[in-house]
Each structure stands twice: as C-alpha cells, then as structure tokens.
Design a protein around this nucleic acid. Structure first.
Lengths: 105, 105
DNA sequence: ATCTTACGTGACCAAAAGGTCACATGTCAA
DNA sequence: TTGACATGTGACCTTTTGGTCACGTAAGAT
C-alpha cells in the first residue's frame, strides 16, 4: 500500500472506471468486469493487478473465480495529505456546491 | 479542471512534493520551489504547469515573479467519487488510526 | 476422462510522460 | 541603457506505461 502505487494506479481512466464499477457493487469477477470494456481480458487483468498491488482493491478466491472488492482507505489518505481538519469543512462545502451545480446542469 | 488531468498530475512524485511544499506555505515562486529540488528549472516549470492546468495550483503574477497557491478542491472531489457520506465516518476513523500508528512508529 | 470456463505469465510493440537544453521575453535596478 | 534576474517555449531523447498475443494452469460440468 505504497504512496506512489496508489497515485499511479489512479492515473489511468480504465482503472478509475473499474473502481467506479466496484463502488456501485462489490465482489465482481474479472470476466464480469471485462464484459463492460472494449479491451481484451489481459488488459483488464493487468489493470486489476495494479489496483490490487496499490491496495485499492482487495480480492478473495472463490473456487475458480476471483472476487474483487473496493478498499476506500487509501483514497481517504490521499485526501488527508493536503486537506487538514481545519479547512476540511470549507473545502467540503465547496465540493458539495460543485456536485449540486453539476446535477442541475 | 478536468478529471483526467487531476489524476495524471497527482501521479508524479515530484509534483506531489511540490504540493506538499505549497501545503506548508503558499505563495512561493518557481525559483524558490526549484531550489529545493535536484532538477533543472525547466523540469520544475513543466511540473508546475501540469499542476496549474489540472487546477491543483492557482497562480498570480507579481511583477516579474509568479506566485503559486494550492487549491485543495479537486482533491476533495477525488475523495467524494469513491467515498459516500454514509461510509465516510468509518473510513475516516480507519485513516485516523493509521495516522496515529505512523506517529508512534 | 474430457471439455469448457476462469484466471495467470512473459515477451513484445506503440504511445505517453519525464527531463534537459538552446533560445527568448519581460521586469527591475543602477 | 545596460546588466542581472525571473519566467517562458519548442525540439529532442530516454524511460515508463498501456495493450495484445501465444501459451499455461486449475476448477467445475458432463
């Protein structure tokens, strides 16, 4: 769960998309995640490996399947690196505002 | 302030170091930030440009100097993408625990 | 036993990113 | 106005990364 691995893992849009899918619903298999993407199984597997090495995804084997789960803790640590407790309220309010503006747009 | 630009900007350790410096104290110039790094001015300038394009750093010209300021809002948006309000408390508690463990280690 | 399904590895290639340099513009001071 | 300082641009090279493929292992179904 090294710093650099986390940030590098988040830098690719395909990997972020995979995290989005797991955020919607956990416990998916490689095959299931692959079916949604315009990419070979090998590409998706590589991406999942990067996410797992970074600690953003944890896995559990179930027979011949491998189930993938999202781990949000490293993302919170990213947050805490540049947002201290004193400014968090103000920044969170600005972020909420942005979310609302995007909903109505 | 595009998604991809933010994540790509955070993916490099030199750029994260620059954000750390600005987190400590805002309003630094290129020359000041350069002096702390084992890199030519041109490299640092490129990195600052990437951070600025991503919206993580905002700047103001002051005569022949350019002052750099940290903008934490995009980082909060990263947080909100995969940590909803319901799980935030639990995850924040885990992250705090990790911070404490690192202090005593 | 054998066939299918699901995951895994290493080599390989093309595209993107990090870093440096020659050269250039604008600003302040004497 | 001359010189020093602070920032800026485009070309260039090297390293890293994203993606595919041939080949391989292992678990469930028939």
């Amino acid at each position: 769960m090294d710093d650099d691995q986390v940030f590098k893992a988040l830098a690719d849009s395909t990997r972020r998309h995979l995290l989005d899918r797991l955020f919607e619903r956990d416990g998916r298999t490689l095959t299931e995640l692959e079916s949604e993407l315009e990419m070979t199984r090998f590409g998706v597997m590589k991406h999942l490996r990067v996410l797992e090495d970074a600690g953003l995804v944890v896995t559990r084997r179930e027979g011949r399947e491998k189930l993938h789960f999202l781990n949000p803790v490293p993302i919170r640590l990213v947050h805490d690196r540049w947002i201290d407790k004193y400014t968090e309220h103000r920044v969170a309010a600005l972020a909420d505002l942005k979310h609302q503006l995007e909903e109505t747009a």
